[in-house]
Amino acid sequence: MENYRPWLNFRGGWLVALSAAMIASPVIAETPNFGKFNLSPGFETAKAKFTGFTGGSFSLSAISNRDRDRNVCIGFADPKPDHIMVLEKDFSRLKVLVNSRGNDTTLLIKGPDDKTIRCGDDTGKSKDASIDDEQWKRGSYKIWVGAFKPGVKYDYTLIVQEK
């Protein structure tokens, strides 16, 4: 068996082996800009306040034009999520709101799967964004806090309330 090369008898040899190795490699978790937090039913609202600031020119509509309730997804933020919220159990209702002292903010929450999107804009007469919704399933949620205009920086507090 002169010049016997068993890997050549394997169709797609190296390409298939390389593809399998890449699939088996661990996925690196996306690190949020301002941190990750976990919530269980009965959490204290006082402990569910997180700070950050808007800024960026990434259009949140690139993630989704509309959310699961057909609300428009607008605003500009960093491409990385600002926060990751981990719900340790299902919640029947949650309210997530932004307090930037009335600046024009937006909100996009993606999770616990890649198909479930929630978007929020003005809250009543305030320009601060909020999302008040039902059926929050256990899992990880990526949260982007945006500004209505690109590149605008507003300091904010993100508040999560159990209803």
Rank of each mutant, 00 (worst) to 15 (best):
R93W: 13
F58E: 01
T51D: 09
R93I: 11
V72Q: 14
R66S: 12
F76E: 05
M85R: 01
G52E: 08
I63T: 11
S59M: 03
D67C: 01
V86Q: 01
S64D: 10
D69P: 10
L87S: 02
M85W: 07
A77I: 02
T51E: 06
M85F: 09
V98W: 02
P79C: 12
H83F: 15
S61P: 00
T54N: 03
G75W: 00
T54R: 02
N65Q: 15
I84Q: 14
I84Y: 13
K80T: 07
P81A: 12
E88G: 10
F76N: 07
S100E: 07
R66C: 06
L97Q: 08
V72M: 13
M85K: 01
F91I: 02
S61C: 00
R93G: 15
N71T: 05
S92V: 04
V72F: 13
G55H: 00
C73T: 06
S57F: 10
H83Y: 15
R93N: 15
S100Y: 11
R101V: 07
T51C: 08
K80A: 14
V96H: 10
P81Q: 14
E88K: 10
T51R: 05
K80L: 09
D69L: 15
L60P: 06
E88W: 05
K89F: 14
L60M: 12
L94S: 02
T54H: 07
I84D: 14
R66N: 11
V86W: 02
F76L: 05
G55Y: 00
D78T: 12
D78E: 13
I74L: 13
K80V: 02
S57E: 10
K80P: 04
V72R: 12
M85Y: 10
D67S: 03
K95H: 08
K89T: 12
N65E: 11
R70K: 15
P79S: 13
K89I: 08
D67R: 00
D82L: 05
F53T: 07
S61L: 00
D67Q: 01
D69R: 11
L97D: 07
N71M: 09
G75R: 01
L97M: 08
N65P: 09
A77D: 00
G75E: 03
S57C: 04
R101Q: 11
R70C: 14
V98A: 05
N71S: 11
F53P: 02
L97V: 03
V86P: 00
D82S: 09
D69H: 14
S59T: 04
A77T: 01
L60W: 05
F91L: 06
N65V: 04
E88F: 04
A62S: 13
F53Q: 13
L60R: 04
L94R: 06
G56S: 06
N99A: 14
R70M: 14
L87E: 04
I84L: 15
I74N: 13
S59I: 03
S59E: 08
R70N: 15
S59G: 07
L87K: 04
P79A: 09
I84E: 15
V96P: 03
L94W: 09
V72W: 14
K89L: 13
K95N: 07
P81L: 10
K89V: 08
K89Q: 15
T51G: 12
L60Y: 05
N71I: 06
C73E: 07
D82N: 11
R70I: 12
P79Y: 14
L94M: 08
V98G: 01
A62N: 11
R68G: 06
S92K: 12
F76S: 02
S100I: 08
